[in-house]
């Protein structure tokens, strides 16, 4: 029982990180109906850049902040190069392929200049040996930190979107970009902002997950991007609550499958869930079927 609970708790924690990744994907989906298939590489860049900066003697707080800023800045490039030129074709194939290419490029770049071997990610706040006692269960402090930070970030984002002028602008653009432009909303700036925020969230998620896994390599992040997408569609693309529920459900399912069947099965289960959710209910549990006008 204790084992099950520990697994479930670990699942909730990693699930919250998936939700955070899902939120990064949702942000650009709201403003442009696109999402970055290379998002995984931004997670990787966030983590690798942190290691590199720490190695160069930059203090931890500054290193993490710079790495996150780098991920956000790269997303501006992605929007400019891999998404905007391909939007006018009206076909999603172009930007799916080009953002995937963007991610591969970053992956190749890091592999070329930092090596394709896994590098150790240092403990920033807690070590993997720190445990906290929660209701009689030994809980890893790192996992707990991930959960707290993810939920806090998501709540902050939700409040920002609902209350601030920028948040309202994002929602207006998401509803109808043309009408938003007519209403005087600087659509271009809102779009770019959403991409920066999406990249920064990916950077944060990358640093947090790397903290748990302890190592990063160029392929780090790819599976996480897919898992984040599963979380996003599970609750309906674009829904924050849905992403949180979806991410946690996915994390728990993955950890339980990994703990009771085989750790190797964890990923396969997650991908199977992805295919099942898409096949059975593409609009997600909380989403409403999009009306297509004929």
């Amino acid at each position: 029982m204790e084992f099950t609970l520990q697994l479930a708790f670990a699942g909730v924690c990693v699930g919250s990180a998936y939700a955070l990744i899902a939120m990064g994907l949702s942000l650009t989906f709201w403003t442009t109906r696109t999402l970055n298939f290379g998002q995984g590489s931004l997670l990787m860049v966030g983590a690798v850049a942190t290691v590199a900066l720490l190695g160069a003697g930059v203090p931890a707080v500054a290193a993490v902040a710079l790495a996150i800023a780098l991920a956000g800045a790269l997303m501006v490039v992605a929007e400019r190069v891999a998404i905007r030129p391909l939007l006018k074709s009206g076909d999603s194939m172009g930007w799916v392929v080009s953002t995937l290419g963007f991610g591969l490029f970053l992956q190749g770049f890091v592999a070329k200049f930092y090596g394709s071997q896994a590098i150790a990610f240092p403990s920033l706040i807690f070590t993997s040996l720190d445990f906290v006692d929660v209701f009689g269960i030994q809980v890893s402090a790192q996992y707990l930190a991930v959960l707290t930070l993810s939920v806090a970030l998501m709540v902050a984002m939700e409040i920002f979107l609902l209350r601030s002028a920028w948040g309202r602008a994002v929602r207006a653009v998401s509803h109808d970009a043309d009408v938003a432009a007519l209403a005087g909303i600087p659509v271009r700036r809102v779009v770019v902002l959403s991409f920066v925020a999406s990249g920064a969230l990916a950077g944060v998620a990358g640093v947090m997950v790397a903290q748990i896994t302890g190592t990063v390599d160029p392929q780090f992040g790819f599976n996480l991007m897919v898992l984040g997408f599963v979380a996003a569609v599970f609750g309906g693309m674009g829904s924050i609550v849905g992403a949180l529920v979806g991410g946690i459900a996915l994390g728990v399912a993955e950890k339980l499958a990994g703990g009771f069947i085989s750790t190797a099965f964890g990923d396969a289960v997650a991908f199977a869930i992805l295919m099942a959710v898409l096949a059975i209910r593409p609009q997600g549990l909380f989403g409403r079927r999009e009306m297509t006008k004929v």
Binding site: L100, G101, L104, F105, G108, A111
Partner: peptide, 9 residues
């Protein structure tokens, strides 16, 4: 990888 990435992009 970088070349493939650039090509796709």
């Amino acid at each position: 990888f970088m070349v493939y990435g650039l090509i796709l992009m």
